[in-house]
Design a protein around this nucleic acid. Sequence first.
DNA 1: TATTGTTATACTCTATAACTATA
DNA 2: TATAGTTATAGAGTATAACAATA
Lengths: 156, 156
Amino acid sequence: MTVDERSGRRQATDRLGLVLAKSGHIASVRIRKALAVTGLKPGHGHVLLWLSDSGPMSQQALIEALGVDPSVLVAILNDLERDGIAVRRRDPADRRRHIVEMSERGAALVDEVDAALTAVEQELFVDLDDGEIDLLRRLLARVRANADEDACAGEA
Amino acid sequence: MTVDERSGRRQATDRLGLVLAKSGHIASVRIRKALAVTGLKPGHGHVLLWLSDSGPMSQQALIEALGVDPSVLVAILNDLERDGIAVRRRDPADRRRHIVEMSERGAALVDEVDAALTAVEQELFVDLDDGEIDLLRRLLARVRANADEDACAGEA
DNA sequence: TATTGTTATACTCTATAACTATA
DNA sequence: TATAGTTATAGAGTATAACAATA
């Protein structure tokens, strides 16, 4: 870490907050471009992956999983449903809830989404070995957990 | 890393590209909120830090440093100049160039920006020790370098 | 009264293309 | 002809607030 001798301040290139924001944005842009071949935007692909991993979910569960605003998820689901990729149906046990489910067409898209993401990751992390990739994943998961805790504490 | 047994696919929570994009966005949001007390937006604060670290710079140099589009930098500098935080002057050696410099008012703001960023970093990285923070910084710097190389190769 | 989902809307950030002036 | 900077504009992503339906 380089520290300026006059000010004793870390340089902008070393501010981890800025570095994380920048590299995250780079990843977002790459993902958006890679997913374009599937006709999906990042949030749409992300929802599809969750439905593929976890099966039918309520919108609330998806909101928590993706960490997005309810209005954002509604817009995503409107698109997915219009294109026949996912379906909303009322939960008979609680008619306020919508259960979201992949359609067959959605299931067919998952592999494309997966391949596009894998390609992006190979580009971005090309010179990291498996151990470093796993390390990065763990460190970022802890950052995310810290942020979630803060958010919960802030709400309470 | 968890792998689904049926599909052999990584779960969404383990896709490093998605994790990086998400944690980066969280950092962006935190930085934006923290900088609000200084009256600056993230890009504006970032420019100010670079001018503080490196002294007067051409707009081209700032464009490279921040990794933004020229039109984005112009908008930022218009704001900073309007608010008396930075000044543009023509380079006498090449009258196409603008040399950008902090004003005294800008210099006075740098410490506030620095403090706001430090506060965000303490929140986000609270449970990482110094070694882990440094590790994360190095890993992300390599990701950024990979992306820059790709971008250059793509342009050529 | 609280919760789930919806709509309308506005704001931030970023990118694209066409332009001016200087070299 | 190429480069530095500018402008206008459009798009993606997100957040806010007010709302309907159900519990």
